[in-house]
Amino acid sequence: MEKERLLTVRNLHAKAGDIDILQGVDLTVNAGEVHALMGPNGSGKSTLAQILAGRDQYEVTEGEVIYRGKNLLELAPEERACEGLFLAFQYPVEIPGVNNTYFLKAALNAIRKHRGEEDLDAVDFLALVKERLQLVEMDPSLLSRPVNEGFSGGEKKRNEIFQMAVLEPILAILDETDSGLDIDALRIVAAGVNRLKRPDNATVVVTHYQRLLNYIVPDFVHVLIDGRIVKSGDKNLALELENRGYDWLEEQPKGRRKTPQRGALVS
């Protein structure tokens, strides 16, 4: 049976101010898949993640993004979230004064409302929270604190995955979730992500290092350099990158790139 196509990125070009950041990205993600997006600093990994989530500081100049049959770029960020797209932030934002649990409940009920479902009542919500908390072994005291305020780097990242566990997205993008995590925390977070994996959802892991991929094993690995995906492969590509770095790909002649530079749409 054919897997549902969740995300199709075609020839995506984007810039921030006058600077071109994405220069023709193509990416297809199907349900049940885990993709790793790797690349050196400044290659555009996080930009791609932010554009998919709807950040308005980037201008898309060319190309398209189809998410579950819809033109993603036309949806407001909150609509994307309600449609099941989740971004685990590289730098989770602090919201003083807003209780973490209250925030999460508001988010969950906004998404449920969008789906035409009723609000989850306090009892059911707390039961859900308790259960999902264990998934990331997060300290329950963080629930009653303001969102991310005063959290350590590792606590913030865990909180992201905890939110993901409660909101149960269809497409989750984890933007450098491994940065700032020690090895134990990394293992716990990765185990949480793995347990959330289902045949009908997918995960895109944006990372700099191969380390995380020992725990979250990807079906596909893509290498993004200078705003283009220059090579795609299976998990072995990540190991090769770990050994050889990115230089050999940057020096590779253009003609030999595995992924097409320009989509058919340009013509």
């Binding site: 909150e78 934002v93 906004a110």
Partner: peptide, 18 residues
């Protein structure tokens, strides 16, 4: 902060008021 809330499905109005 507003973008973070929106990315979780919460509208700008609700985010500000929250």
């Amino acid at each position: 902060q507003i973008f973070y809330c929106k990315q979780r499905g919460i509208s700008a109005e609700d985010a500000v008021s929250m």
